[in-house]
Design a protein around this nucleic acid. Structure first.
Lengths: 333, 333
DNA sequence: CTACAGCATTGGAGCGCTCCAACCAATAGA
DNA sequence: TCTATTGGTTGGAGCGCTCCAATGCTGTAG
């Protein structure tokens, strides 16, 4: 249970501690002979460098901290994939911490991440107040994903929710739909842009928007549909605020004896793995998640290397994924 | 961008560095007067302790490393919740790293985690070879979740897959089913115990087991069903190796004009959030995921504190969650 | 044969912290 | 009055490493 140090390796290889340090950092100014001797000794002892001591001594860090607001959401997993890809190829490690959607726990996660003095921080859809982010931004570079900010030292990466909603409306209109309702995400992140995009697109087509208050869950989607049916105001197409909501909507429609897409078309948002299941096969809007992560990591590393001081605001284009929940209205297919 | 050190706080509070250290660690042998003075100075400077320097100096760590083999799987998120809960209440922080299901990447993640010299490591369903785990176990305490091990210095937490399969079979038999097929998980983790449990339970009921080779995906589940239909060997009930497989099976059954559960009953395994969707509403086997995490953290902390040296092998009981995909055979309901 | 590069190698200082032995009143006991 | 004892406080050493200035060593030019 006691790990060997550089000193041990140096002793065994018959060189100085400083030389071992050079070898470990891949310095070119070490003779081939010594290098192999050191590596051999390290191997035999099972030595691996102590990242914290290194970071302490060098006053630099090769660690990027990532705060994931909700580990349960697969959305973030793909963003992390993108971050990891870029970080790794540039010689950085990442450490993840999770906030569990609670501001208090998230704050603690932030504190914990900060105590490792990472080179920078990427926050995925954080729920902590902007002031907490601003304070952290005084200590190290920070990039926000799926959350906007006006702080000039903070970079952001977001999807263009307005455009995504527009894509969905355009698709439905091109199929011949005229009555299209939007099940709104309420307070949820990104719900605002999606709603705005929907309204704008409808008006651009000369159609009347119909916004129905709802939430990011399948139960809420089902509830919204039932109320529309009760009202007698059920349209021929539905644009849900996200995939879960859409799946709930579909299930309520089927419960009411309506067929999807023959009687009613449904479009989701996010292209979660759920949407891709053949049993669901949901037409939805895809966000370039891995690209979010890549751009976030790239932006962060630029700051870390002092290559840039102006803030970057990425707004990525979502795309439409057509599956089997959309068709022309009235079973015309 | 430059963080204050203990020295700065000491200077400002007019005390020694050692005294600040005592205050930061909440020592009782500090006069109230000095304590408040130090805390005030720290607050004004925005000081927070440097975790790495602390850990280096104290030769101890309050960090638990967690390696998640696949961040995309919500299963692990709940395990992490359990770990986090216990760790936090015992004054430990956790840092997470992901292996992305690839042994090479996982190895790197392990290396990275190790370089922080955490107090211990929890590996969630790791895919690295046992030797790599054994080697790491020489350096610090390790707990494995959803993977077994024979190494005596490593603790494990698993679900009792045999019992879970038995629960499912018992449920179907009690509904009146006699022909029950198992869509097998093949090489997948935990597929073995589930298959064994199924076979044992069938034989205990005097029924003939029918194991169909399949995989942990919805496409594989659908494929298996199609081949059963083509064979003319479709039973009245299906026990899938996991929820995804079950959903694929359901969709293939419906495509073939069969109703679930009226014509065929289907049981999944894992109780993922997918199963709970009303559109799916899958009868399935639930594993106490948060409990996995809690027990893993507890076991690890015992080792960390040298309270135990004998290995612990937790085998948790799964439970049956009845939803709407199971009913008596032949539409007798 | 000396001088001077150029290169590989090394000891020492120091990163921010903890820990320990020593220290310093102030009070208690003899 | 002198010595113990106690509670609060302090300087110094050292954790494992990096960085820097200095050192030794070749080989080549003068």
């Amino acid at each position: 249970m006691v790990r060997p140090t550089m000193e041990d390796v140096a002793l065994r290889a018959g060189v100085s501690r400083a030389l071992v340090s050079l070898v470990m950092r891949g310095s070119p100014k070490v003779s081939e002979m010594r290098r192999t001797a050191v590596l051999k000794a390290a191997e035999e002892l099972g030595y691996s460098p102590h990242a914290m001591a290194r970071s302490l001594a060098s006053r630099t860090s090769t660690v990027l901290g990532v705060m994931v607001s909700d580990l349960h959401n697969a959305f973030f997993a793909e963003v992390v994939d993108g971050i990891d890809e870029v970080a790794r190829e540039q010689g950085f490690d990442i450490i993840i911490n999770t906030g569990g959607r609670s501001p208090a726990r998230e704050r603690r996660a932030l504190e914990s991440l900060l105590s490792f003095r990472p080179a920078g921080l990427i926050l995925l859809s954080p729920v902590v107040p902007a002031t907490a982010i601003g304070k952290a931004a005084e200590q190290l570079p920070i990039v926000l994903v799926a959350r906007s900010s006006r702080v000039s030292t903070v970079d952001t990466v977001n999807d263009d929710g307005e455009q995504g909603a527009r894509l969905a409306v355009d698709h439905l209109v091109s199929l011949g739909h005229k009555r299209i309702a939007h099940l709104d995400g309420g307070e949820g992140t990104q719900a605002g842009p999606r709603r705005r995009g929907y309204v704008t697109a409808m008006e651009a087509h000369g159609l009347a928007p119909q916004v129905v208050s709802s939430e990011y869950t399948d139960a809420a989607g089902a509830r919204a549909i039932r109320s529309l049916i009760a009202d007698g105001s059920l349209p021929t197409a539905i644009l849900s605020c996200n995939d879960f909501n859409a799946v709930g909507a579909i299930s309520a429609l089927e419960d009411a004896g309506l067929r999807v897409p023959a009687d009613v078309s449904v479009v989701g948002y996010d292209n979660t793995s759920l949407a891709a299941l053949r049993h669901v096969s949901l037409t939805t809007i895809d966000q370039p998640r891995a690209e979010f992560g890549r751009l976030a990591a790239l932006a962060l590393l630029q700051r870390v290397r002092d290559e840039r001081t102006d803030p970057v605001r990425h707004l990525l284009n979502p795309s439409l994924v057509v599956r089997n929940t959309t068709a022309p209205p009235g079973g015309l297919r």
